[in-house]
Nucleic acid binder design. Structure first.
Lengths: 140, 140
DNA sequence: CTGCATCCCAAAGGATACTG
DNA sequence: CAGTATCCTTTGGGATGCAG
């Protein structure tokens, strides 16, 4: 925002012409959107989202086995957070032993769909990424 | 918002009928894709990505001011990681004082585009999310 | 101006034990 | 089976100081 030094004026300050899809409407909305993304782009949240998208209704213990490496503690925490955000529906069957089922809500499915682009990007460009890493590592 | 999605009480294990875009080809590829997403979905990475997408070529200190709340340490770390992943290009002008510019690579721009869907999703559904949180908080 | 190194605190997260 | 509670290790990340 400070343009008090004319000698440092870069002509390359333009938005490169690409599709800038970022809302950037108001600072508050921007902050809200970021907060939502930060929660949702969490490692475990994404994995649980994928599993539920692919398998529909899944019980707690089975879900834990399908999400590789997650601890019971984090599974519970992640599911509670997703439930509070309206992404998953938690159904308790009051029987003994307890039977609790988890499934995506409509909102959860829509998020899953929105993330498709990122998954496809990662799959498409993985070679480039690893090549870049090798290049970066081998520079002296 | 609440009546727009079908009931999720289908006990069947089939993929809910939605566009399951997840690759899920081989376990290894799946793990690689997840690793990439986990790195890229990092809080600071996303913010830096957005800033560079919107402003093109930006210098270090200015970038730090634009990414609200980031410390110099995390800015450096984030930029190094993005550089090693081939997302940003780092240009050093050997003058005194030092002059270092950062800009997105083609890969970086493509990632930015891929994230569009998530940004739009967050903006579109923020009301639903906050409503769900309120509902969850006031549960008996 | 850029950025590395250090110290230090807070948060994330795993392991284990216990409960309805 | 589906959690909760506790302990403890690891990591994230801010603050400061210094160097090129």
């Amino acid at each position: 925002m400070d343009s008090s030094h004319p000698t440092e004026n870069d002509p390359a300050e333009q938005p490169a012409g690409t599709a800038s899809c970022f809302p950037a409407t108001s600072p508050e909305l921007d902050a809200l959107v970021r907060e939502i993304i930060a929660r949702v782009a969490d490692k475990w949240t994404m994995l649980v989202l994928e599993i539920l998208e692919e398998h529909g209704v899944v019980r707690f213990t089975r879900l834990g086995k399908m999400v590789h490496g997650i601890s019971q503690k984090m599974l519970t925490k992640t599911l509670r957070q997703m439930e509070s955000d309206g992404l998953v529906l938690r159904t308790i069957h009051p029987v003994i032993p307890p039977h609790v089922e988890y499934a995506l809500t409509g909102l959860g499915h829509s998020l899953s769909a929105a993330f498709c682009g990122v998954w496809i990007w990662a799959e498409t460009h993985q070679e480039e990424i690893f090549a870049a890493r090798r290049r970066f590592q081998n520079r002296s």
